[in-house]
Simulated scan of single mutants.
Amino acid sequence: MKHVIILGIPFSIINHHKLVNNLNQQIQSAEKSFVITANPEIVMRANREIDYKQDLLRATYITADGIGIVKASHILNNPLHERVTGYDVMMDLLQLSNYHQYKIYLLGADQETLEYTKENIETEYPSVKIVGHHNGYFDWNNNNIVEEINQSSPDVVFVALGAPKQEQWISQNIDHFQKGVFICVGGSFDVISGNVKRAPLSWQNRNLEWLYRLLKQPSRWRRMLALPQFTFHVIKQKVKGSS
């Protein structure tokens, strides 16, 4: 698969439809896959923390969750065609799971949010088999989550621990499993549960979902400071590559 390297992180040059199709084939072949949907904040953290970068580099696919990643790929003259978000991929995998009766496991969020997420999935996708779930508040070094997942043998594991924990958890545990799609889905459980409203489609189509979320959650402004730093380093990479 072709990649564009953005500040040392290899982003898969793949669109949403192709990724979902690939994952569906891997599920049917009982293969294993690790999917990360990354934004500029994740890339900047990986450039500060070498261990975290190594976690990212274990992924089968790293896709552009943020429009900043797509714009960076254009600056580097190796364009990604579109955003491929964790939420959107999760929705399509749930549809496929409903059709094929795939087994899924949910990991993340607080207990109340997790329960609402489970209930809403079961209502919207009645043929999906939720074979297990665990909230995101657990002792990192003392839990039985790996054993529970292995015993239930899910086809898809949705990990909603937020960055950097979700990428770290999959990286550190994926070798314990023989099969399954393990995908980082960030705040998707909050949306599915009804706790958080996603940006209207008109905002999404204008690549303004980040602004909608900032207006709804002003406390996110500190996280936005990673964007100008990211842009500066991408331009620096561009200049180095041109010299």
Rank of each mutant, 00 (worst) to 15 (best):
E147M: 10
N78T: 13
D65C: 01
I75H: 06
E112T: 14
N78P: 00
E147A: 14
V157W: 01
T85G: 03
M91P: 00
L114S: 13
N78C: 07
H81I: 09
V146N: 12
K129V: 12
Q166R: 09
E119K: 15
S152T: 15
D155K: 04
D88Q: 09
Y87K: 06
N144K: 15
S152I: 06
L114Y: 11
L96S: 10
G162P: 02
A72L: 06
L80D: 03
Y137Q: 09
Y116W: 14
E148R: 14
V128G: 08
Y116P: 00
P79Q: 05
H81V: 04
D110W: 02
F138K: 08
I69M: 04
L114K: 11
S153V: 07
Q151M: 14
V131P: 08
L161D: 06
L161K: 08
Q166F: 09
N120M: 10
E115V: 13
I75W: 13
K129D: 11
Q111W: 04
S127C: 09
S97Y: 02
H100S: 10
T113G: 04
H81Y: 02
A163S: 15
Q151I: 09
Y87L: 15
N150I: 06
N144Q: 14
F138Y: 15
V128W: 09
L161R: 08
I67E: 04
K71Y: 12
W140F: 12
K165P: 00
G136Q: 08
G86P: 05
H133E: 11
Q95G: 05
E147V: 07
E147D: 15
Q111I: 11
T123Y: 09
N77A: 11
H100R: 13
G132H: 10
Y105R: 12
I69S: 00
Y105M: 12
K71Q: 12
E122K: 14
P164H: 11
I121D: 03
N120A: 04
W140D: 06
E112Q: 15
P126E: 11
N150Y: 01
V84R: 05
P79F: 01
Y137W: 12
H134P: 01
S127R: 13
N135Y: 09
L96W: 08
T113M: 07
N141F: 11
S97C: 04
V84C: 05
L161I: 09
A72K: 02
K165D: 07
N78K: 14
L96A: 08
G108M: 09
N142G: 02
V128A: 09
F138N: 05
R83V: 05
K71P: 00
G66I: 01
G132A: 10
S73C: 08
N141Y: 13
Y125T: 05
V131F: 10
G162W: 04
E124V: 02
A109L: 04
P126L: 11
T113E: 08
Y137C: 05
P126A: 12
G86I: 06
L76R: 00
I130T: 10
V131I: 13
K71C: 00
P126S: 11
N77C: 02
W140L: 05
Y137G: 04
A163N: 10
P126M: 12
K129H: 13
A163M: 15
Q111S: 13
